[in-house]
Design a protein around this nucleic acid. Structure first.
Length: 189
DNA sequence: TTCCCGATTTACT
DNA sequence: GTAAATCGGGAAA
């Protein structure tokens, strides 16, 4: 098990994120991630060890979900990765639908499997049924978990600056975003 | 308690 | 390309 949050963000590519809700199991192949390396990372909610009711979950031991509401209408899902007291997390920005496609279509009010179904951090949460009630849950296989792919795909991994963090000043351009080259299920800035 | 604004998406010009 | 939708967290007062 790696400990550096950027390595973990890389390693999460190609794994499968599952949720179970109302007996529905849905899963998507992780194709795009971003690392948030608090407390020194200005883009992180836990920058400067900012410890509040919301960010508390990021200070827990890794292996839990950090879910929060953004822009008053979208949920964003992160994997907490650090040791206890070290606020590190990886934002899942895009997945490729694999399991429970009909449920994903229903949740997204769509009738066609296409990249816009889950190629963004808010979209994939809607597709997988992730909401604020998942915040703090352990990724233990009850309601949300991550599995290795049975037949891993090989893809060239590209890194870039993170998206939507203009407020982070000199940390805006850190290459903390990772995604697969030539993968259609990638978020578009 | 007030005020500002965001790790976004979607619809519309 | 621009703008609206929409609300809770965090900082200031």
């Amino acid at each position: 098990m790696r400990t550096d949050v950027t390595d973990i963000a890389r390693d999460l590519l190609g794994k499968i994120l599952f949720t179970r809700q109302n007996g529905w199991i849905t899963g998507g192949l992780i194709t795009e991630t971003e690392a948030y390396d608090g407390p020194w990372d200005k883009a992180s909610h836990a920058y400067g060890n900012r410890r509040t009711a919301r960010t508390e979950i990021m200070f827990q031991k890794g292996g839990r979900a950090y879910v929060y509401l953004c822009y008053g209408m979208h949920h964003l899902f992160n994997v907490v990765t650090g040791e206890k007291g070290v606020p590190q997390a990886v934002l899942i920005r895009s997945v490729r639908p694999l399991i429970g496609l009909e449920h994903m279509l229903y949740r997204r009010k769509s009738s066609e499997i296409k990249p816009s179904l889950s190629n963004g951090p808010g979209k994939l949460c809607q597709a997988l049924g992730i909401n604020i009630s998942f915040n703090g849950k352990s990724l233990n296989g009850e309601e949300i978990w991550i599995e290795e792919a049975q037949a891993p795909e090989f893809h060239e991994i590209v890194s870039s600056a993170r998206i939507g963090i203009d407020y982070a000043k000199e940390h805006v351009f850190l290459p903390y975003r990772f995604y697969w080259k030539n993968e259609p299920y990638i978020s578009k800035p």
